[in-house]
Design a protein around this nucleic acid. Structure first.
Lengths: 234, 234
DNA sequence: CGTGGTGTTGAGTGCGGTCAATTGCTGTGG
DNA sequence: CCACAGCAATTGACCGCACTCAACACCACG
């Protein structure tokens, strides 16, 4: 890590956020309450931020006010790499829960030694591209396929963090999940209920336990439209 | 431009391509016939390529063989920036028409002067991210909205090239367009016919003339589902 | 002239969206 | 401690958009 921690003293580009219940001074220490924005779309930011704890979502808003969730960000992720190339943020980033972030100072000296962060930033952007392509691909499938794929992917992320791959708590609301997967919240509910009825998983509010990953994987990438041709009743 | 033109002598990672009708030696000079691949997915490539003439599409293929078109690339675009960070390509790139490309040599000297291409590559990747987010956002709208948005966007690209913004020839087949916009080819046909019947444009095979950009813009980002609420009968 | 690829158009249907009612959880005040 | 309001999530009813299947038109080939 060549980045250096700053005391997180952004002047006040966050003033637009609702006057949340957070204690004065909490935000300056990098604490965000649920619903508070880390960045707003179009903002010019100083530093990328490392997420210490909590969850954030990044989203864009279309001309009709509909929000399109681009991604969820967990502890260890870095958001706001636009700071490193002097671009405005193209999406808003908001806390889904109480969240702690850390501003990362980026060395700006022109005479950069060989591979300090440069490759890191590039590979970070490259991974972002891969993530978006993956999301784009998901969008083409059926709603069941999208939800199944999301749950499996989320399980893998959890596993990478040393948590259970099959037993986890979704940190985001149905609405956010729906906006991420491109469907209605009711459809999320229905699909989860369907999976539960088939015995593929158990659902208790946001607590998910995967019971049959094989079946989920089976339909994870299934195309929309009618199911297996030849299987439908006459 | 700090890139240098190479005589395009890729050994033969392209051998997998179908034994196209191209003359021997044509490909070595950077000429691709319709259907020939510039890159295959998973390939490790040496240099990014500048497109001189023609059109390419980049795509990924899901586990069911369905291809998902990520983008179309026109003269002036650069594809294959993975070469600069030593990554494998994540998507295939194939010519939609006779195409001429140029391999760009990338200086690898560690002591890079200040801003030779570094920012260029990064901003290139950043623009790719923006493009993907835009595409993702489009996917949420109705089919009419997606086609309208595509035509308007394509017109703008044409205008940037000094061509007519309202009168152009689409270089890709209906199938590719459908795969790009996430719909069936029949739907593309139907939407274009509908636009034509409404007098918004004229269609002659791939030759499009936009006659009412305002109307197209109106529905460009319209959400799917029923039309204007309050307008439906009773 | 036959043939295959590509685009258009029609018929039918199912997935998933909207609308709406109900349930359950949470926090707040009496 | 309970009543109530407010919000999130679930479930049901309905229906329209877009997909599949199918037939046909149109070129560009040999």
């Amino acid at each position: 890590m060549t980045a250096q921690v700053l005391p997180f003293e952004q002047p006040d580009p966050l003033g637009r956020a609702r006057p949340g219940p957070s204690q004065a001074g909490a935000r300056e220490r990098g604490i965000l309450q649920r619903g508070e924005h880390l960045f707003h779309a179009g903002e010019t930011i100083q530093y990328p931020h490392l997420i210490i704890a909590g969850v954030l979502k990044s989203y864009v808003t279309d001309e009709h006010g509909q929000e399109c969730v681009i991604g969820f960000h967990m502890p260890g992720d870095v958001v706001g790499f636009e700071a490193l190339i002097g671009q405005q943020t193209f999406c808003g980033v908001v806390a889904l829960d109480t969240t702690k972030v850390l501003a990362l100072q980026h060395r700006k000296e022109p005479a950069e030694p060989e591979v300090p962060h440069g490759p890191n930033l590039m590979t970070e952007m490259y991974r972002e591209i891969l993530r978006l392509v993956h999301l784009l691909q998901m969008d083409r499938g059926s709603t069941e396929g999208r939800v199944a794929r999301f749950l499996l992917d989320y399980g893998e992320v959890q596993a990478e963090r040393g948590c259970s791959q099959r037993n986890f708590v979704l940190p985001m609301a149905r609405y956010d999940l729906a906006r991420y997967l491109g469907m209605a919240t009711e459809t999320i509910s229905r699909v989860l209920s369907r999976f539960r009825d088939r015995g593929w998983l158990t659902v208790d509010h946001n607590h998910i336990t995967i019971r049959d990953a094989a079946e989920l994987l089976q339909i994870a990438g299934s195309p929309p439209g009618r199911g297996q041709p030849g299987t439908h009743p006459q």
